[in-house]
């Protein structure tokens, strides 16, 4: 299980990285933390002509507050975000979700933007981005554009990123005053991909829920602020059916729907209870 041959370049600037990418396009892959890409290289599921390693570009290695967002550069690791001192206050949802991503050892290297780029339907960070209505900054040699979460992840492993773009940053809105957040996931073992993951924001004007691991991308739905009891169960039940769950070797579609109903309800209640 060894990678096929490729060229390797560790550019010294973002500009240089984008120039190489502009030239190589589809034949290039961006290497950041490598926690998803490297296994695929080892298994030869991916055979790029060139790897562009942005993991050590200082210009991309940052976490900062900016315009009501937490902006996370492409080289910032999940571990760095986990240890960001303001995390619990500014992004309680991320603080809850991060420990579920892989393991200590993989978060040490895996990046926040890399997780978004791969667009795994079960991954936690795309789920959080979708729930919070965050955005992704896409940069190419000739342009920069900002794409909303809802327009970014298009389906199973596919995103709106063009071949000449890198995700230079992700922006997660900071916690809304008065809103409560909840996160729950069911994985077979600690650190596994979620059979279903649920993120909830209970705000003043509504309850917003996002489900990962069931459909081909995180699915978001808005419920009325006061939803509870049978109405909540009804809404979750319809949501569960709408996700078009499929069987796989680890769980049946029906099981995933039950998780949406049951964990969904618990998570909504949890989010409501921590509304301040």
């Amino acid at each position: 299980m060894k990678p096929a041959p490729f060229d390797y370049i560790a550019p010294e600037s973002v500009e240089e990285a984008l120039a190489v990418l502009a030239e190589a396009g589809e034949d290039a892959r961006i290497l950041a933390g490598g926690q998803t890409l490297s296994p695929m290289l080892n298994m030869r599921l991916v055979e790029p002509a060139v790897l562009i390693d942005i993991s050590r570009l200082p210009a991309l290695d940052y976490i900062r507050r900016k315009n009501g967002h937490i902006e996370i550069g492409a080289a910032a690791t999940q571990n760095a975000l986990e240890n960001w001192p303001e995390l619990a206050a500014q992004a309680p949802l991320l603080a809850q979700a991060l420990p579920h991503i892989g393991h200590f050892q993989t978060r040490n290297r895996g990046t926040v933007c890399g997780s978004l780029a791969f667009a795994d339907p079960s991954a936690e960070l795309p789920l959080c981005l979708a729930l919070l209505g965050g955005e992704v900054v896409l940069q190419s040699a000739s342009r920069q554009r900002v794409v909303k979460a809802a327009d970014f992840q298009l389906g199973m492993l596919s995103t709106a990123r063009e071949a000449d773009e890198i995700i230079s940053a992700a922006r997660f809105p900071v916690a809304e005053a008065g809103a409560g957040y909840g996160f729950a996931e069911m994985a077979l073992r600690h650190g596994d991909f979620a059979l279903a993951a649920i993120a909830v924001k209970a705000g003043k004007t509504g309850v917003r829920i996002a489900i990962g691991g069931v459909a081909d991308r995180p699915m978001v739905r808005n419920f009325p602020a006061g939803i509870e009891g049978a109405a909540l169960d009804d809404a979750l039940n319809d949501l569960a059916w709408d996700l078009a769950a499929a069987d796989d070797p680890h769980a049946t579609a029906r099981y995933r729907r039950e998780l949406v109903r049951r964990l969904g309800r618990k998570t909504v209640e949890e989010a409501k209870s921590c509304r301040v």
Binding site: D234, N237, D238, W241, D242, L243, A244, A245, A246, D247, D248, P249, T252, A253, R254, R257, E258, R261
Partner: peptide
């Protein structure tokens, strides 16, 4: 554990997605 599954509500706009046993 979970007994018979609750069907989707009948007044929904779209038909439930079809999934077949694994």
């Amino acid at each position: 554990l979970h007994g018979a599954e609750r069907p989707p509500s009948t007044d929904r706009s779209e038909a439930p997605a079809q999934t077949l046993p694994g």
